[in-house]
Design a protein around this nucleic acid. Sequence first.
DNA 1: ACGCTATTTCCATAAACATAGAAATAAGAA
DNA 2: TTCTTATTTCTATGTTTATGGAAATAGCGT
Lengths: 102, 102
Amino acid sequence: MTTTIEDTAKALKELGHPIRLTIFKRLVKSGIQGLAVGQLQKELQIPNSTLSHHISSLASASLIRQRREGTTLYCVVEYDRFMQVISFLQDECCIESPSPIS
Amino acid sequence: MTTTIEDTAKALKELGHPIRLTIFKRLVKSGIQGLAVGQLQKELQIPNSTLSHHISSLASASLIRQRREGTTLYCVVEYDRFMQVISFLQDECCIESPSPIS
DNA sequence: ACGCTATTTCCATAAACATAGAAATAAGAA
DNA sequence: TTCTTATTTCTATGTTTATGGAAATAGCGT
């Protein structure tokens, strides 16, 4: 799948909110087992519905996915997708930058 | 200067718009001499004021700066700042990722 | 079926964002 | 000073986003 401007912009936009960036960062560190919504709620101390909205935003940008286990929903980072976004940015920063290359 | 969540989120938010990401990408490739606003306008074919607003957004996130030469304003990427943003993201993706490390 | 826990969706509202034409400003030349 | 080019700022408007309580849904146990 080719990464497009629209695609990447969408991901960056969703990450471009303090709470969502915090959530995402926390999820990245939780690894592939992810983290339960309840656990996130406990750590962040924000209203359930606000958290749900933010989680939904990250999912809409395919940055995370959710896995249910009984009544518990886990949020898991889509690492490949995240790598794509970073790669897109790196492709930008490595061309004609003021570093030794230029 | 330490990169904070707020800081990074701000940068990501500003990059999280198709046109702004396109502008930024174009500027990165133009190198340290930057690019004139007029040139950007020619390439992007969007109204002057819309372009100005977008440029202002990128500047407000310290992703670019402007340099005047007579009546011409050049936009130049703040590469250090950009590197910081990328580093922040990479710090996230290299810890407990599903790669061989875990 | 009922009750409980976990979480999302609905609904409403205020704030923020994106857009673009018009007006204003900045700089240079005559 | 006037005129011209380059660009920003102002103004207005419509759209989108962020927030959070209430209602609804999902899953499980009794």
